[in-house]
């Protein structure tokens, strides 16, 4: 609270005060009062007024000063009511009580909507597990009656599963609480699972899968990483070249990190689109032409990577290739424990 600003708001009062003293002096002069009396009475009035002023100003000054500096320091501004003491002047009390009430009602609102979100999240997870049952039945039916259905049905079922997984992981990535489990996982095993999942599509579309040097162990949640890789491979398949398409997967390591590199010789991403591929609902040139795209895949991938602490980078040359690099930090502490 600045003195100048404070005084500005009190200008009428100050004006009236000066007017009052002026009137008193004039009155006393008119009544021919002795000059000493005039000076003494003016002095008394002035002194007391000054004390009144300090009495009003100082507590306010100290209160608002701490209030503002606390507010400045806090990361979560709404917690400010917890840090300040109720002041002993009336307006301050009103303010603090009001803030407290506002906070309380806002927290209640947030709590309701959080619990609604959680309910919804739980319902979605449950629903996805429910939906997977008929999907599993259908997959088995197609397999058991191969003569009735061809591979196209299988392909569509796979798409359906892929979209369901996207919703599931979107829900998982949006929520604050942790539902992943980091452990030491074999990269080879994870790649193998992803490859098997996409085997039919890869063979169908005649895309060569070249995997080399992946005998590394990384700290991750294997299910989440499988989803991430699945999305990347899915993109590679969607935006492949017509002839001689291939996807190369390899890993390497240095002092601090293990890198997983997924290279495809597909149609690539244009320079203008490249910086935006991780944005929500961004479809870009490739997504709009040809294959339908929701623009959610890479957005979710990025979010999951951030949660797991992995780094993801995409480089591309339009019409030539796309390279996705995932970086996993090595944990020295883990090695020591072993």
């Amino acid at each position: 609270m600045k003195l100048k600003e404070y005084l500005k708001t009190k200008w009428l009062l100050i004006l009236l005060f000066h007017l009052m003293i002026l009137l008193l002096i004039l009155l006393q002069l008119a009544l021919k009062a002795p000059i000493e009396l005039i000076i003494a009475s003016s002095f008394i009035i002035f002194c007391f007024s000054f004390i009144f002023f300090l009495y009003d100003y100082l507590p306010k000054h100290f209160f608002y000063q701490t209030f503002l500096s606390q507010l400045e320091k806090l990361d979560q501004k709404y917690l400010v009511t917890e840090t300040i003491k109720t002041p002993n002047f009336y307006e301050g009390k009103i303010l603090v009580d009001a803030l407290y009430e506002i906070n309380k009602s806002m927290l209640e609102r947030i709590q309701t909507s959080e619990s609604n979100m959680l309910d919804f999240k739980e319902y979605i997870e449950l629903w996805i597990h429910e939906v997977k049952l008929p999907l599993a039945t259908l997959t088995l039916m197609v397999h058991n009656n191969k003569s009735h259905y061809d591979n196209k049905v299988k392909e569509q079922l796979k798409r359906l599963d892929n979209y369901l997984e996207q919703v599931l992981y979107y829900v998982r990535s949006e929520n604050a609480e942790v539902d992943y489990l980091i452990k030491n996982c074999s990269l080879k095993k994870i790649i193998s699972n992803v490859a098997l999942k996409n085997k039919d599509s890869l063979l169908e579309q005649k895309i060569e899968l070249i995997v080399s040097d992946i005998d590394h162990f990384i700290l991750t949640d294997s299910k989440w990483l499988e989803f991430i890789l699945n999305q990347i491979i899915d993109n590679s398949m969607k935006y492949k070249k017509k002839e001689n398409a291939y996807i190369k997967i390899a890993s390497k390591e240095d002092e601090d990190n293990i890198y997983l590199i997924i290279y495809d010789n597909g149609i690539g991403i244009s320079k203008a689109d490249l910086p935006r591929v991780f944005e929500k609902s961004f479809t870009g040139k490739n997504g709009r032409s040809g294959t339908k795209s929701t623009g959610m895949g890479l957005y979710i991938v990025k979010k999951l990577c951030r949660k797991l602490g992995h780094k993801i980078e995409i480089k591309s040359e339009e019409g030539k290739c796309t390279v996705v690099t995932l970086t996993f930090a090595k944990d020295r502490y883990y090695d020591v424990l072993k």
Partner: peptide
């Protein structure tokens, strides 16, 4: 299972 999570597997 249809529960696809690391925790369930572990």
């Amino acid at each position: 299972t249809s529960r696809n999570s690391e925790t369930d597997e572990v």
